[in-house]
Design a binder for these strands. Structure first.
Ligand SMILES: [Mn+2]
Ligand SMILES: [Mn+2]
Ligand SMILES: [Mn+2]
Ligand SMILES: [Mn+2]
Lengths: 218, 218
DNA sequence: AATAATTTTTAGATAACTCTAAAAATTATT
DNA sequence: AATAATTTTTAGAGTTATCTAAAAATTATT
């Protein structure tokens, strides 16, 4: 059985190292989890003991097969709860993350699969991130950063890379949501800002925005 | 801020001492929580320090006003989650308790009130126990134990006193559910068992059953 | 290749919660 | 009222997860 703390470490390693496959440094984990490197070392030893991570002193850690499975299951729970909060409980997409951080640790063999069915087996969460199915398989959606889209092309917003509350609120304010049609009107070389057409309105957005919005070509 | 452990102690004191008003003994808490009396003493001191309980050495504990408020809020969360699990996620009434024990500790100012609205402000949980509203007020429902009902009277099942999985499954097996009409046909003095008519079927039930089924007169 | 800077680990301490065993207080029995 | 039984508290120690400070290993710079 994994503790809440162990699960959070597993999740951090999963997210930092390309789905847990790459080696992740002690410091990177410490930063991600807002803790000290010495604490990370302690926990990583414990996780290695439990065969959840591969660890060699000074060489960083990666997830074992069991570790990846554990991580994917937590991600599944997190994202399903986010869908529930937005679709059923009137949460906005900038409010769900903290609550999902708690709900993702609830242990029940039945709960998540029933929730999945109740939500009609969603494939993506409110931020456009894919939800793994019961067996851990992700539905691949080929998305591209808005900054890569050519001028005069229209595309559809399908996700965000930055899901900080501030960024999401900014998008809300300018009526940019998943499903929004965006036409790239112009790009400015000097500051890499771009002008887009959204809901009939012209809007100039910074490099940060275009680099953190995922779109699909139409 | 209350920890998960503190919340569980508060809840135990609330349930053992008539809504936290009566004094509860250290041993009673230890038994309820499946822990040692010495651990209870430690925690009770901590709770007294936080002004959640009234405590005098060797005299037992009761909840303060803040303690009652905390307890009622946990009970509210527990019962609302139980309704959610039964009404929305196809859980049966004998499966919900353990999951609700986990969910009741989720902290979110918005979550519970939205859940309450989503469930259409239920007044009772799947076991017939009242759900306090936002302000901690319980809707009183005058219920009586089936064992108190006179012969030849018909009544409606509105709750259970024993909500152990075994007892609930027994009720399921004999199609006794909240809302079921029950007519008391006969009482046997020698073992205090009674014969009831339910769904057109005659059934003899033990003293335990009649003492743990709440009914409302019709 | 030697030295400096950085990263990582170890050592030792602390906080929250738990336990066992012994001491103290209360309650029951004679 | 004295003694016995029970309950409750204290003392001391273990576990998990955290921290600071110092030591060791790795990586970068000269
Ligand atoms: Mn999230
Ligand atoms: Mn998300
Ligand atoms: Mn319950
Ligand atoms: Mn209940």
């Amino acid at each position: 059985m994994t503790t809440l703390t162990e699960e959070n470490y597993i999740k951090a390693i999963y997210h930092l190292g390309k789905h847990g496959t790459e080696n992740v440094s002690t410091n990177a984990i410490a930063q991600e989890m807002d803790t000290k490197a010495s604490s990370v070392t302690d926990m990583v030893k414990k996780l290695a003991e439990k065969d959840l991570v591969n660890y060699k002193k000074y060489q960083g850690v990666s997830l074992t097969q069991t570790g990846v499975l554990t991580a994917v299951n937590i991600v599944r729970k997190h994202r399903l709860w986010e869908v529930f909060l937005v679709n059923k409980l009137n949460f906005s997409w900038d409010e769900v993350h903290d609550v999902a951080e708690q709900l993702e640790h609830i242990k029940s063999p039945k709960l998540i699969d029933e929730l999945d069915a109740f939500l009609d087996f969603p494939t993506h969460d409110p931020h456009g991130d894919p939800i793994p199915d019961k067996d851990g398989h992700f539905s691949k959606l080929d998305k591209v950063k808005l900054s890569k889209v050519a001028v005069n092309t229209t595309c559809t917003c399908v996700g965000v890379d930055d899901s900080s509350s501030d960024f999401l609120k900014y998008l809300d304010k300018h009526n940019i949501a998943l499903g929004s049609k965006i036409k790239v009107m112009a790009t400015e070389p000097f500051d890499e800002s771009i002008t887009i057409l959204i809901n009939g309105v012209h809007l100039s957005v910074s490099k940060h925005v275009s680099n953190n919005l995922f779109v699909r070509a139409n």
